[in-house]
């Protein structure tokens, strides 16, 4: 049985880079410090591979072929897309894919109720490159990219995202005993992209969600945050479901570290860390 040596949940708020000129310097410094905690936690855990769950932003996929969950099986994960680099100033990232582990995830999913698509030719967008650039800038640990869909309806219900996390845990447990594997879920809190509420968020809702996250209140999150409930707060708030997948790995264990103070000029940028899970 392999070990889940570290679990990270990280914002992928692109405005950390895109709006950097407007960001409050002190808030940004505190966020960088928080990312430093995640980076140190991951380094200490010394994983052989990282399973990363992050949603595509209608970059790789379009409505002609829009999987709920896809596993990247090609040899290299590289990104982001041109406009994310050139216009939004988001960091680039290039690393190997752990293809053997990717095939295990794919197979166990197909045989146990998460019928992944497999995608050999893909790029990773900022939902991958932003957290990875912060937590493993060396780009030297192979990943298994699980590309989720949080934008193109219909979206799997909240418990399916939790089941995805449980499945990831099962795959890790079935791997050889000497392997050390980390998991990253890339998410955001309330987000509206392109809609009429853009720029106006319900901070009471954010505070409530953060309290549940801090308390490890897995059942409350699963019972309360249906997809329609999330979308009511912002049309892209289904990105939070990547965090629910992390809960499927850690269950109701509280994070060992959580930081959720908004960065003025950027927005909410929550991050959390769990050390050795199982």
């Amino acid at each position: 049985m392999a070990k889940t040596v570290c679990v990270i949940a990280s914002t992928h708020n692109p405005r950390i880079f895109w709006n950097r000129d407007n960001a409050d310097e002190q808030d940004l410094a505190e966020l960088e410090e928080a990312f430093g905690v995640l980076r140190a936690g991951l380094a200490e855990a010394a994983p052989d591979a990282i399973v990363v769950v992050a949603n595509d932003h209608l970059d790789n996929f379009f409505f002609d072929n829009l999987p709920s969950f896809a596993v990247g099986t090609g040899p290299v994960a590289e990104g982001p897309f041109w406009y994310e680099s050139e216009i939004m100033h988001l960091p680039s990232y290039r690393c190997a894919v752990h293809q053997d582990l990717a095939q295990d995830v794919l197979r166990r999913g197909a045989e146990n109720g998460i019928p992944f698509s497999q995608v050999h030719e893909f790029k990773i967008d900022h939902a991958f490159t932003l957290p990875l650039s912060y937590v493993r800038p060396e780009q030297d640990i192979p990943i298994v990219p699980i590309i989720s869909n949080a934008f193109g309806y219909p979206i799997p219900n909240t418990r399916r995202w939790y089941a995805l996390g449980e499945l990831i845990g099962e795959v890790i447990h079935a791997r050889p005993a000497d392997e050390r594997i980390a998991v990253i879920g890339s998410f955001n809190l309330t987000v509206e992209v392109g809609g009429p509420k853009m720029g106006n968020y319900n901070q009471d809702f954010n505070r409530w969600v953060i309290r549940q996250m801090s308390d490890g209140a897995k059942d409350t999150i699963l019972d309360s945050l249906s997809v329609p409930r999330l979308i009511r707060e912002g049309n892209s708030t289904a990105e939070f479901l990547n965090y629910v997948t992390v809960l499927g790995v850690v269950a109701d264990r509280k994070p060992d570290f959580i930081r959720h103070k908004p960065v003025r000029g950027v927005g909410t940028c929550p991050v959390a860390l769990w050390k050795g899970v199982a």
């Binding site: 895109w18 932003h57 209608l58 934008f151 392109g194």
Partner: peptide, 16 residues
């Protein structure tokens, strides 16, 4: 047009 697609189009054509 899907809101995310619309915003992406604006992002590549217009100021932030």
């Amino acid at each position: 047009v899907h809101p995310v697609l619309l915003f992406h189009l604006s992002a590549v054509l217009n100021p932030r």
